[in-house]
Design a binder for these strands. Sequence first.
RNA 1: GGGCGCAUAGCUCAGUUGGUUAGAGCGCGUGCUUCACAUGCACGAGGCCAGAGGUUCGAGUCCUCUUGUGCCCACCA
Length: 902
Amino acid sequence: MEISTRYNPNEIEKINLKKWLESSVFSSRKESSKKPYSIVIPPPNITGILHMGHALNNTLQDVLIRYKRMQGFESLWMPGTDHAGIATQNVVERSLAKEGLTKEDIGRDEFIKRLWSWRDKYGSTIIDQLKKIGASCDWKRLRFTMDKPYSQAVKKVFLRLFNDGLIYRGNYIINWCPRCRTALSDEEAAHKETEGWLYYIRYPVESVQPGKEHITVATTRPETMLGDTAIAINPKDKRYQWLKKSKVILPIVGRRLTVIKDEAVDPDFGTGVVKVTPSHDPVDFGLGKKHSLDFINIMNEDATLNKNTPEEFQGIDRFEARAMLVEQLKTKKLIEKKEPYRLGAGHCYRCNTIIEPRVSLQWFVKMKPLASPAIEAVEKGKIKFYPQRWKKVYLNWMNNIQDWCVSRQIWWGHQIPVWYCKDCYDLQSETNPIQKRKGVIAAEEKPKKCPNCKSTNIKQDEDVLDTWFSSWLWPFATFGWPFVNVEDRGGKVEDRKIKEEEEFRYFYPTNTLVTASEILFFWVARMIMASLKFTGSIPFSDVLIHGTVRDDKGIKMSKSLGNTIDPLEIVGKYGADSLRFSLMFLAASGSDIQLSTEKFLMGRNFCNKIWNAYRFIASKIEINKINIDNLNYLPEDESDQWIKEQLNQAASDCSAALEKYRMDEAIKRAYDFFWHSFCDWYLEISKDNFSSTKAKNSLFIFLESIKLLHPFIPFITEEIFNLIKKNPSLKLDGFLAEARWPNTKKSKINSKNLSLFKELLKSVDEIRDLRGVLALGQEKIDLEITTEEKLKVFWQKHHKWFIRLTNSNSIDFTGKPAKIFIQNKYWAINLKIKAADLDKFKNNLEKKINNLNSLIKKSEGKLKNKKFIQSAPPQIIEKEKLKLRDFSQKSARLKSLKKIID
RNA sequence: GGGCGCAUAGCUCAGUUGGUUAGAGCGCGUGCUUCACAUGCACGAGGCCAGAGGUUCGAGUCCUCUUGUGCCCACCA
């Protein structure tokens, strides 16, 4: 058999991926005999390109899914993509722009056609990329948030909320992105510290008293003054009581401003006088409502100033207008001063443009009623967060939840299922709840005529719903909820419907949701609310929140900073397994990961190690023409017992770690076992006597090891399984991906010889240590061993590898050795070295004795302490006593050794 | 302004309900072409566990404060 000494992942990963995809290993269905385990993928945007965050997120999920699958669960990983309204629309708008076109040029229908064809062409890029890193999703179920049945769910949900009175429409101040030209929710307007100025502007006061010709207000956004309709002071602020009898004049515009008093004004900030712009500031909006002020909108959709401003400002961008205005005020000597100021300005989370607060007609969802059951579910522990601390964050947000602006002024998305009758829709009734207005029809399909006036002159609301309004249904809408209109998925409608509902009941609620903390509010919290509201059940019981991927300087990886590492580049260079291995190795519970390309060498090296371990075993089998007819594990000697015990321990630890979502611990344990127990000891020991039993045993342990490793590094393990499978007499079948997870019972092997064997390993360590101390280099030395007669058989069995692993020449069992270097309960070993080397040894010996003595002192001190004896638990005291005994024995041994040498 | 994290080896990080002689990977030093693997093997150096108090028989682990650092939330214009 020709196998390369280097593991080359590329070809192998391609082949095995193909095999998996062509098979049904990843697919899932209701199996009454099996327990379900399900995860819904956080659907990546169709515009998405796989980045390290995806790689981390999806590897975590895949490890869980594969682990559970091997454990015999019916494992379902539901895949899909998100239509990502604004993001996708932006991409297609950009490509239109290259043709010199705008979306308005081609019209809504044509634009949406373009979007669909864009998504058909590029929308599954990220899906292919996920496959490349080994994600074992049930790909046949691939969902999209704009699939017909999914859209049905969105409509149903909207109508349900509408009819329950949880939806309202009205003019409110919202976050407006002037570039995307749409409203955004509060969550989509990320607050960022921005350098700016605080301007102190003088507003003239009518009915002049001497020295009181004006008052001064402070603002960071001077241009909004064009929309001012009032001046506000704190009612307790004595400095400005005189103002209420005066009229304040808005400079440049000349408008008379009312003076209002409100507690919201902080007398200590700025001058204590606030300009009030109800249409362009959230706080002022509230003041405007409360005090019945005028609302003057001064901006167009693109944040240029509109015709409600003086002519010279009309059509000018807000920032340019700001500069112009400040200039004008300066010449009029109305700027008192300006000071540098850092303010938290909202930025569009899609295009990073500074948000403009703006009053406009939007749709909202009342969140408080939805939040309370979702709060309860988490408080009562029905849903658990890992790590736990996110519970607090979640609850804090939920308890202060604000209504959700769900309408977006874009074209790509779920259009709001509300129609207006052009003939009887009554503008005058705008103040009524939307549900009670004449000529408003909320329905799944376009109504034929108006139920009120029978007119057919009907038009749908132009807005679409926030993308998250569809994402929040993901855990159940992906299963086909609400189980109507399934004709698009083929088969007999009724059969499909029944099957889908059954599956839904089987797999839902899902088990684990794996996500980054960034979308806790966007998505996780809302899914919990939606699921409880519409399915009456929690969507998942565990929420695993992982950290952020950072670069080697600790800075968050982002395209704009150019500090990303492309996961696919790593796949190309080192293989998907290396990528996955290193990510899992570094992903401690919830903490951020600092990455650099070198980190992936860890994974590469490990894969290579596995590869070569297999090569070794395979070659031994081949060279020795060993016939492996079955894989019963038959311990031939103590090393076989020992490695089996180690394996069981590792498997048990590994499972325990996975159960508590500690993938890092699990992979470290499996890694440590494979490399440092199996390869470094067991295989090394076996080299001298690779009998057919040994061959079977090594193959058995190897096979169990790659099962443990498979969830983390599926490609290489599957490939090696392929190679092993080629031996027909083994009767191995199927995929490693669906093999049974190793037995995790800690089967204790009670064998006196096993403890002897462990002493043997210790002696090897000690000799190696001594060789280092004595700086023996490669010099082979002779050993003399004194032991009881009955242990000689044991030694006979093991002396060969013992000689090799200690780099010795020979072992002599005759007589009593002159000098004893190593001694334990069972034997003493003498290294025949030159007299000159003795000094080095003695020095080392002394160091060790000193070290032991200080430990003994410490331990004795503890045991003499009455309080310790009184209050420490008995097992701790017992442990301490054992420790002391052990130290003392060792020390005594070393001391007598020293005597002999002296 | 609130809330949540993090400070452990040169670097990146583990360290379970307090009970170690504080660990791993990389890096570093020494010696090895040992017929699976130099993407390897063996050995080794390297830590006042940020600082100060406290609780305790016992603290890297719990409490308080300080310093540094990161994140999230919030309508001080």
